[in-house]
Design a protein around this nucleic acid. Structure first.
Lengths: 392, 392
DNA sequence: CTGTTAGCGCATTCAG
DNA sequence: CTGAATGCGCTAACAG
């Protein structure tokens, strides 16, 4: 069904010029309501879908959005992608996937970026990139290519960015532990080359200080986000003399927390009885491990949504829909929603940039709030047996 | 860097016609070695990359490959994607992502497929689709659109497909349990609407029968691949009178096995002491749960590679590379490799179709072997502490 | 071997 | 409000 029809076919069937058809397809105002109606009907009947590549060529603007992700196996990528995909599905844009696999050498990463710019395939780029590599994307931005970075980026101001409030998240987690009576709280950091690790560490320190506790260097170890590294760090903590051993651990990622669990078990320590544990991320599995992991939830799904919204708002908004719904809102301070309606996550803050002048949207940096998900691993009262902590 | 240059620019700089430039770019044979050399040099210098959209339009054939995936949150999608991305990275093709989110109504799925065909954006489609929806993709195939399906598909013969040998995998898992001395082996099925679930069940039955054990209906329960459903099934088993309770459980997915672990713990059963457990999938986390889960490994990464290779081999192979490497092998019975060289997974079998006449490659269905990964949850001797079971 | 001529399917002037 | 003309950047015949 739906044999390849061109705009000319439709024009012929409607008894008008292709120019007119093109006009209604692109929602131009100057068209007679009747002919518009008639054309739309024929388009519908024939199941006509304009060639995205041809219109891109002719119009000089692509309807493809690039998404650059590091190895898919990072546990939170799927949720970010889900957010992106869902929003994109409502628009006329399509997603093209660029990926940097683990084995990509640092230099080649620049090439990948150059390639993205050079092919001129996409209208903009959404990038999830580990710490230092972000500079390549910033370069794109400087060249005037629409770009939005996601998570863990250390950027010059007004480079569009969407991330989570790592510092506050960590702060709240540690505060929670302190309120539970813990005094010797260890922290397993992520790689310190990543901004998010440093921010979490900052939150950790702030909580301790505010509560009058002095951070103990022996209770801080650097991991690399993996379970194995978390385990190693925990092993180190547990080999401390008993009176200096931590009674609680705040891990910089859920996976590292899993490693702590393994180590604890091996050392005969029961969680939460002998050790309180809090992670960071709220991976799917964290609700299912035993004991269920208390953790700081990062709104990955929302970050995906938010970032693509931001990117779209930076484009020349040539919204146009044929069969699909089309039209969405731009980002603005006051969660405005237009058309099919996009809702900004309830809690977010614009960190920088952000003059959102109606036309040429100004670049913005958006930081989404994290939230502490209390489960049993920290010994607090609540005991979710296996509820999947309902969140959108 | 790399300001927007067109083929005309290069032609001018090289003192030839754009046609000639196009010829060398597309690896046409009839070009003077010297001019070819010169042109290539200039292309390199200028960092010229031809517009993928323009050449697609003009040449009538796209260099975009569609990938259709169900909700990203399925745990094995990332690995499949990784395989796909890695292979695609070596070619001139780009990936465009189509996704069907969980909330997509069954009818709309057909629309998504129609949309893919209608836009004529992509040259072919790779689809990972749950059971019944596959029919839409089959329709595409019937329309002559190059398509390869991945996993769990019940297809007419010679619809290109790549999957795993579920039956043998299950068979080996159960056989392993029997050899370990178990007699009351329960099985938690995946949804029976999925072919893979039925195949695994078949393998389960076959192993029992071959060893002279009669399947007990009470020891079989249907789940839906999730941890929760696995837990429910296990609860049911554990509430059986002691002499009818299973001493081993073969779960149809790792996630369901996780559910079994939770239930076992609640019922005071120790794994593997009181209960042997084997899963299916070999998710990343299965090596890290405690006890480490014995499971049947599905070669997702390889499936990704294999499927994209198959799809590419079905295209009009207009291989062409500028900066990137390009050129890969087609699929054939005898793991042939061409150019940069692709290596078929060592063990695979062509199930159907498969006349691979040099030119118009015939459709094939490829089934990859699974492998039993023995860890501690089944009580066998080997105890991998936390080795990530090295596989490619 | 190489230049010339036509479009691919559509968006956009620019005149009516 | 609408049609005719022009060209996006490139490939594909067609003649040299």
């Amino acid at each position: 069904m739906a044999e390849k029809r061109t705009i000319d076919d439709i024009a012929r069937l409607a008894g008008v010029s292709k120019a007119t058809v093109s006009r209604v397809l692109n929602h131009k105002p100057d068209v007679d309501p009747n002919t518009r109606e008639r054309i739309l009907r024929i388009v519908e009947e024939q199941g006509f879908v304009p060639s995205i590549t041809a219109s891109g060529l002719a119009g000089g603007r692509s309807r493809l959005i690039g998404v650059l992700v590091p190895s898919f196996t990072w546990p939170f990528i799927p949720n970010i992608m889900r957010g992106i995909a869902e929003v994109i599905g409502e628009t006329v844009y399509e997603l093209v996937l660029y990926s940097i696999n683990d084995s990509t050498r640092e230099n080649d990463k620049g090439d990948v970026i150059d390639h993205i710019l050079a092919t001129k395939l996409t209208a903009g780029l959404l990038a999830v990139l580990p710490g230092p590599s972000a500079k390549y994307v910033v370069r794109l931005h400087k060249h005037g290519f629409p770009v939005v970075l996601i998570d863990d980026q250390e950027l010059p101001p007004n480079v569009p960015w969407v991330g989570a409030d790592n510092c506050t998240g960590a702060y709240e987690a540690v505060l929670h532990l302190i309120r539970l009576g813990h005094r010797r709280i260890a922290h397993i950091q992520g790689p310190m080359k990543n901004l998010c690790s440093r921010e979490r560490y900052e939150g950790y320190c702030r909580a301790l200080q505010e509560e009058g506790l002095t951070p103990d260097p022996d209770l801080v170890a650097e991991g690399c986000f993996t379970a194995l590294s978390g385990r190693a760090a925990a092993d180190k903590f547990f080999s401390l003399p008993e009176d200096r051993r931590p009674t609680a651990i705040f891990a910089g990622s859920d996976q590292m927390a899993y490693g702590v669990m393994a180590s604890a078990e091996e050392h005969g320590l029961r969680i939460p009885r002998d050790l309180a544990l809090v992670g960071f991320d709220d991976l799917e599995s964290s609700a299912h491990v035993r004991p269920a992991l208390t953790t700081v939830r990062q709104p990955f799904y929302e970050m995906g949504q938010c970032s693509i919204e931001l990117l779209l708002s930076m484009l020349d908004k040539p919204r146009h829909s044929t069969v699909r719904t089309g039209v969405r809102a731009g980002i603005s301070g006051s969660a405005s929603s237009v058309g099919t309606g996009f809702h900004m996550p309830s809690t977010y803050s614009v960190v920088s940039g952000g003059v959102n002048n109606g036309n040429g949207s100004g670049p913005v940096q958006i930081q989404l709030a994290t939230s502490l998900i209390v489960r049993s691993s920290c010994g607090a009262s609540q005991q979710f047996s296996d509820s999947t902590t309902g969140t959108t």
